[in-house]
Amino acid sequence: MGRTKSFVTADVVRAARDVFWRQGYDEASIPQLRAATGLSASSLYHAFGSKRGLFDKALTNYLDEVALPRLIALRQERPAPWALADYLLGVRRELTDPGSRLPLDGCLALRSASGSLAADPALRARIVRYRAQLFAAMLAGVRARRPEFDDAEAERLASTVTNLVISAFTLSRVDGAGAVESIDTALALLEPRSAEH
Rank of each mutant, 00 (worst) to 15 (best):
M1G: 14
G2L: 12
R3T: 13
T4H: 09
K5G: 02
R14S: 08
A15I: 10
R17S: 07
R17Q: 15
R17V: 02
V19C: 08
V19L: 09
F20S: 02
R22N: 00
Q23H: 10
Y25S: 01
Y25P: 02
D26W: 00
D26T: 02
A28K: 00
A28D: 01
A28Q: 04
I30Q: 03
I30C: 03
Q32K: 10
L33D: 03
A35N: 08
A35P: 01
A36I: 05
A36P: 01
T37Q: 08
S40V: 03
A41V: 06
S42H: 11
L44K: 05
Y45A: 05
H46K: 12
K51T: 03
K51N: 04
L54V: 02
T60E: 14
Y62P: 08
L63F: 04
V66S: 13
L68T: 12
P69G: 05
L71M: 14
L71I: 06
E77W: 00
A80Q: 14
L84M: 07
A85D: 14
Y87M: 12
L88E: 13
L89V: 09
L89I: 07
V91G: 02
R92L: 10
E94C: 07
L95D: 09
T96N: 10
P103A: 11
A109P: 03
R111A: 14
A113W: 02
S114Y: 05
S116I: 03
S116C: 04
L117I: 05
A118M: 12
A119Q: 15
D120Q: 14
P121F: 04
P121Y: 05
R124M: 06
R124L: 05
A125K: 09
R126T: 14
R126N: 06
R129Y: 04
Y130R: 04
Y130W: 13
R131S: 13
A132K: 14
A132M: 10
L134H: 02
A137M: 03
A140S: 14
V142R: 11
V142A: 11
A144F: 12
A144Y: 10
A144K: 11
R145L: 06
R146W: 07
E148S: 11
F149V: 06
A152V: 15
A154G: 11
A158N: 04
A158I: 07
T160G: 00
T160N: 05
N163Y: 10
V165S: 10
I166S: 11
F169R: 09
T170L: 08
L171Y: 08
L171E: 08
S172P: 03
R173D: 01
D175Q: 06
G176V: 04
E181W: 13
D184Y: 04
A188Q: 10
A188G: 10
L189C: 07
L189A: 11
E191I: 09
S194I: 09
A195V: 12
H197W: 00
